[in-house]
Design a protein around this nucleic acid. Structure first.
Lengths: 218, 218
DNA sequence: GCAGAAAAGTGCGTGCACGCAAGTTTGCGT
DNA sequence: ACGCAAACTTGCGTGCACGCACTTTTCTGC
């Protein structure tokens, strides 16, 4: 019940932040305004978000992390780890329920917001770590951590590239779509990691067999 | 010549930051003090570093990025890409010319400094991108970017783990060395990425052959 | 050399992040 | 039902990051 209230104010704050930023432009929004709109003190606002930009992008990115982790877990074991991870991520970035057109415009326009948006990609790391570790059989958590961190890094690179070309196309008049859509970029950037993901899965399988049949023979 | 002066003041600032932090403890150092010690205004200080922690860790990490990139470039092509990258990184993190014992103690003790130190690992990303792209033959820069980002992420994970156990061993009395030395951790965390690095190298080789011998046959 | 441009440094003002030490609400044991 | 303890909120104070306008330094073409 305490948790519910916390989550509620958190969402109220980020929603208010996004709304005010859209209404007045992001430079005309003080954190006092956001706090006042929700009815809390500005000090409380800072207990939830450590920067103004964080609150705004949180409204767009809420829970994407959890959805990606769940999506990875849902894929059957028959579709290799690499395919499961890549498709789960592309799916969750393709279904853009929340990111309204204008919100994305706002984010791509302001450098500070772009940076905050890019930073949110690293939020998928911990959920992904758990999901991958589960699929690898919970042996060797370090491998899962490294793979999750690498996947998050690849996603970050894709988003950076997407923001770069998107922003450029806005200023240049919308004529160029040099590097394609975000899903395409995600696939492109994640592809080089597939060998590592599948190799880890292979090793995990072997490890499992070795434990099940612990003879010293070759 | 302008560049020389800039670099000089930059180093003077970070050196002064580290020295003062060691002398008085990091909480008793104002940025005004650092600026005054070097003889510039505090505003100029902020033109070089965007946080107080950054200046301190910069004194420890200066140019590690460039050294890693050069080390990768120096390995002969006969040692696969994965081996070249891994050994180059381990080498540069093993030769600890600058990080004096006490400086590392200082960093591991303060959470804010630990975080800043971890963030510096991402600085190797751009130099590494260039080095890897060069080895892959400058075709497909995206792959190089993803691989470099992944390697940087793995290094970050290793440093995080190292800091975690190191800090714990300080508070616990120095009796435990649970997860080994930093070089060992680096090898452990980079190992899962080897398949991806070598696969990319393989693909680059094929691509090069296909271009050299552009027939449609199989 | 010199004039003007480009770049680096500086002073000021503003909004913000965050530690601290209260006050207030919520949850739980008895 | 009551009271206590933990969690959440708040006001205050401080140091800091950074935009802006301005001065000083350094670089270039003539």
């Amino acid at each position: 019940m305490r948790e519910q209230k916390k989550q509620a104010t958190r969402e109220a704050l980020s929603a208010a932040a996004l709304r005010l930023a859209l209404e007045r432009g992001p430079d005309n929004v003080r954190v006092d305004d956001i706090a006042e709109a929700v009815g809390v003190s500005s000090r409380t606002y800072n207990n939830y978000f450590s920067s103004r930009e964080q609150a705004i992008v949180a409204a767009v990115n809420s829970e994407r992390e959890a959805r990606i982790a769940a999506a990875v877990a849902d894929r059957p074991d028959s579709v290799g780890l690499a395919a499961a991870v890549i498709e789960a991520i592309v799916d969750q970035y393709t279904a853009p329920g929340v990111p309204s057109r204008e919100a994305l415009l706002l984010i791509t326009a302001r450098p500070a917001l772009r940076e905050a948006f890019v930073d949110t990609t690293s939020a998928i790391e911990h959920p992904l770590t758990d999901a991958i570790a589960r699929r690898l059989g919970d042996i060797d958590p370090n491998t899962a951590r490294v793979l999750a961190a690498s996947v998050a890094a690849a996603v970050r690179v894709a988003v950076e590239q997407w923001l770069r070309t998107t922003a450029a196309s806005f200023t240049a008049g919308g004529l160029v779509v040099p590097s394609g859509s975000l899903p395409d970029l995600l696939r492109t950037m994640l592809a080089p990691l597939a060998p590592a993901l599948d190799a880890a899965e292979q090793r995990a399988r072997q490890e499992r067999c070795r434990v099940t049949t612990p003879d010293g023979s070759k």
